[in-house]
Write a protein that binds this DNA or RNA. Structure first.
Lengths: 207, 207
DNA sequence: TTGTATACCAGACATTTGTATGGTATCATG
DNA sequence: CATGATACCATACAAATGTCTGGTATACAA
């Protein structure tokens, strides 16, 4: 028999282990918990896990392999996920460009959100603190509200601009006095999504 | 028999499905792929999956339940981890402030790095595209090179500035003409770390 | 034609994995 | 002492899941 620990101590370790594994994207099996904690019986691991579920610190899909997960995921929060970073979007939707992403970066989003990253080219949004080389994280959506920063497809090329409606006409505003607003024709224009986050990497990372 | 598709079409759908599931944190089973794609035979799903593995688009842990994963996660990249975001750092090192973080955000860093997030207050770095409310991600380190953007502790308060050495004297430069450089006395000054990333949340997230 | 590749199916088997039953030992408490 | 709670173990069973063998059908090229 393994040395008996004080009540709660081992369970805390079990919780940490499960949490760590979930953050890595692969939920552990009961037996993996058993091994990691050094139990000689599967059941010991199971008891700790079930207890954690009872306490509300874990949730599970009964009977399913690797069925334990964090209850927050119930409430819309997913674990950190990796989304693709695109260097360039040509005609069509971003998904057709996802074939050859520059890389992936972690975000924490709702499961329902369809997110992707896009590397910014040009100075046109530097007045809003979005500089060339920055990565904008975009939630795919076909519409936007006036004032939103969006990724729009104009004449087959993706661009980041502030979206505004003026007298029922679409205007795309750069945030830089050296650039002029665009009033795209509706047949050569579509919204790919809304920018929900901006990231700048000051070291080699993120490429 | 399900309608036969052109070569590659169904496989693409399989790949998308697996990818989506992985991003949600729970890798699919072969049978879940089968159901999602509407195959009547498990083997059909398996053939697509194995082919994706052969093509290098997926990897797998043979024999293990829910064993398919994206190859990128293999290649030296550490899994995304959650780091604490601090609202304010008072005297002392950031770790003493970690007790009550604002929240956590995911980053992908080397295991050896000691990272934390800090919410930026004030306009002093807006010329470098770092705005009030932005979160800077900081790698803890006691020194910096001239030109690095650092988080420094001056008179017991944390501040984000550009670090410069001028004739063996430390200068902390704001990136905003409305502010003046600081030349802190060495006994009331220390470097907490270097800013390696800047994030701005344009929606409720990240808070 | 033959051969090869692709897409799909049916059924079975073997391993992994979740679950259950029953047991030992220690500690605290009435 | 008896009782209950906790921590842990051994073993077995059943469901979930990965894997295999062999088959049909279509398209295309040698």
């Amino acid at each position: 028999m393994s040395p008996r620990t004080k009540p709660g101590v081992t369970r805390e370790r079990v919780y940490r282990f499960v949490r760590e594994r979930l953050e890595q994207g692969l939920p552990p099996t009961v037996r993996e918990v058993q091994e990691a904690l050094g139990f000689r019986a599967v059941q010991t691991a199971r008891e700790h896990l079930e207890r954690l579920v009872l306490d509300g610190r874990l949730s599970k899909r009964a009977g399913k392999a690797r069925g334990y997960f964090l209850p927050e995921q119930h409430a819309g929060l997913t674990p950190p996920i990796l989304i693709p970073v695109l260097g360039r979007i040509q005609a069509g939707d971003p998904h057709s460009a996802i074939e050859a992403p520059e890389g992936h970066i972690p975000v924490q989003g709702k499961a329902s959100d369809d997110l992707f990253g896009l590397r910014v080219q040009g100075e046109s949004m530097s007045g809003a603190g979005i500089l060339p080389g920055d990565v904008v994280i975009v939630r795919s959506q076909p519409t936007a509200e006036s004032g939103d920063i969006v990724v729009a497809l104009v004449d087959g090329e993706a661009t980041v601009k502030t979206f505004r409606m003026r007298r029922r006409r679409v205007e795309l505003h750069p945030e830089n006095p050296d650039f002029d607003p665009i009033s795209p024709k509706s047949d050569a224009f579509s919204i790919l999504g809304k920018v929900v986050e901006v990231r700048r990497f000051l070291e080699g990372k993120g490429g």
